[in-house]
Amino acid sequence: MQHGSPDSVSSLPQREIPATTVNTDGKPVAGGASIAVPQSSGMGQLWSIACANPLSLVAFALFFLLIAVAIVGPSLVPYDPLASNASIALQPPSAEHWFGTDNLGRDVFSRVVVATRLDLSISVMAVVLSLVAGSVLGAIAGYAGGWLDALVSRVMDTIMAFPLFVLAMGIVAALGNTIENIIYATAIINIPFYARLIRSEVRIRRNSTFAQAAFISGMSHWRVLLFTLLPNALPPMMVQMSLNLGWAILNAAGLSFIGLGVRPPTPEWGIMVAEGANFIVSGEWWLAVFPGVTLMLAVFTFNLMGDGLRDLVDPRQRQ
């Protein structure tokens, strides 16, 4: 929450100066007349959506908290996440060690905080990659139709025919056990979702009147696709993206859990849960529960954020 509020406060000055933003955007200020409906900036819009929907407010606050932890967390943690100290192994949560210590005496809280950056970057990069690749494939398939559409669609169906986690396992095992390969594997298994979504959104609007109006206005096929059809597919894409961020984190953690992907001693939520699981039977629950709860919270945040993000990119939601 502390991290959420500075962001929202810093958004206020941007909202206060519509006149200058309007000018630089190339929006009309005919005769210097004042604009009756100020177009709120992205941050201002975010704020008004968050206010309208308390769940979105919670989601955005948690999201900013996660981002802040990922950025500044590693430099703020009380202990070195890799430093082992056998004398304090397996201590329960205390004022000294908030989340307790693990079997090597490492501070679980520090490890959970430091892992945020790695887990978030894996999922965000994987989602961005699959978003870009899926959008390009889906947009071309939906716009061109014909054999190109058939080809892209069948390739996507082929990917979907595999159990996705097993496919990801196979890719990582074949390409080698590195972080980049986890990202690629996660991206590849998510491409079909974006490609299918974009394809249908583009197909629906391809013959719409406003696309025809764009042709009449001298817009080429590429410009209509890029500046008319794709932006209109953004709102459902945002929902898909936020759900996918959650899946991607789970996928990365899952790969690490079964020993593919991030390798110990690197702090990562999935490995921590995997390693901690051995100790639950002997009563040392904190090893697995804290990274697990954090993981759950991150997925929960991304899933909650979908509706808010959709409203953010949909001008029809503006009053």
Partner: peptide
Amino acid sequence: FQDAGDSIDPRHTAFQAIEQPLRGL
């Protein structure tokens, strides 16, 4: 076009809609 609502890109402001042919042509 027949339906003025459908023929304007929902993501375009009135200004952008009127400006479109000037940009393209």
